[in-house]
Computed example of a mutant assay.
Amino acid sequence: MTAIDDQNTTDPAEETVTAPADHVDPAPNPHATQEQVEAALKDTKLAQVLYHDWEAETYDEKWSISFDERCIDYARGRLDKILPDAPLPYGRAMELGCGTGFFLLNLMQSGVAEKGSVTDLSPGMVKVALRNAENLGLDVDGRVADAESIPYEDDTFDLVVGHAVLHHIPDVEQSLREVLRVLKPGGRFVFAGEPSTAGDFYARWLSRATWWATTNITKLGPLKDWRRPQAELDESSRAAALEAVVDIHTFSPEDLERLATSAGAVQVESAAEELAAAMLGWPVRTFEAAVPAEKLGWGWAGFAFGGWKRMTWLDENVLRKIVPPKFFYNVLITGVKPEK
């Protein structure tokens, strides 16, 4: 992870992101000044840029993102859950708030779309997403974009997707209006991974408890080798402070249905997933962030992924039948742009 320091310098390796029509997007800024960080605490869009530029180069590692069968199956599973009979492939798809391209690039690898566009408010994320797309040999362009004012023409895309993005956007309804504007008539959007209000509550408390327990227990003599250097722990704490600013909303399925309908979408449907899986996943990810990476080998990776799969089975085959959707961690939403 790149530390936020007091020098606002640009790494010579950082390149501007060139967009269509000779437009040049701003370069990534992974080295924010302390003044910028302080300003970001009062400006959520600045916080989005600084936080995600800061994390862009290490984001895939932090969240165990890959572009292999594991994540291809996961991404496709989200689409199939909310849209099991999608008329594949879509011609051109866009990812809103793409991050490193996790959702769209893996969907494209599974045959969901032929051509893609990645957009994010963070130049650093767009740069990494385009690099990932190039490495995968996918036909993808990219733009630095504010989700409330998407820099593409009307009626451009057949599909718009996003994963864990709507909760970062100040005006979600306005962003959905923009999504509908850039969709072709009859085009569809699918957003997954949005935190529910109940899920966000228990995930944050589980994470805080895990962080406190791990960072204190590893102060003890026999376990000191399991403690990250204090500078790295302090850095993670600073990241958490900005993360609290960039995570703006939580939703119930009904909230997202209402916002999508108000924005003008038709055929609006929602779904929810991950309860037991989230209660395992958040402590696991927090523990991984609190201990040296070299302490965690393939055995841990097998436990984490295998445990998540078993808890997902429990969610889908047992808990989904008896627990109301609002208590699951992730909310999914889909809708269609009306035909003219």
Rank of each mutant, 00 (worst) to 15 (best):
F102N: 09
E61C: 03
E153C: 00
E194T: 13
A198R: 05
W54T: 01
W205S: 09
E15M: 02
S236P: 02
F103P: 08
A263W: 01
I322D: 00
T312H: 05
W211S: 04
D200P: 06
L319P: 04
P20L: 04
T218Q: 09
V128M: 09
V179L: 06
F189S: 09
A13L: 15
R227D: 08
P123I: 01
A164S: 12
T218L: 05
S64R: 14
N132R: 07
P229W: 04
A86L: 11
A56N: 01
E173N: 11
D225H: 15
E173C: 11
A263H: 03
G142R: 01
A272L: 00
A304R: 04
V182S: 12
G101R: 07
V37T: 08
I72L: 00
V179Q: 01
S117H: 10
S270F: 14
D146P: 01
L314K: 13
W63F: 12
E15T: 11
Q267N: 15
D85G: 00
W211I: 09
K81T: 13
K81E: 07
G187P: 12
R227W: 04
S149T: 02
L332H: 04
D155G: 01
A147R: 08
Q174I: 13
D255E: 01
F251R: 06
N135M: 14
T334F: 00
E35H: 02
H31V: 07
Y202G: 01
Q174W: 04
K340E: 08
A47H: 10
N216W: 02
V161N: 13
L46Y: 04
T2S: 13
T58Y: 01
A301R: 15
K62I: 03
T10A: 07
E232L: 15
A75N: 06
E15I: 08
P89N: 12
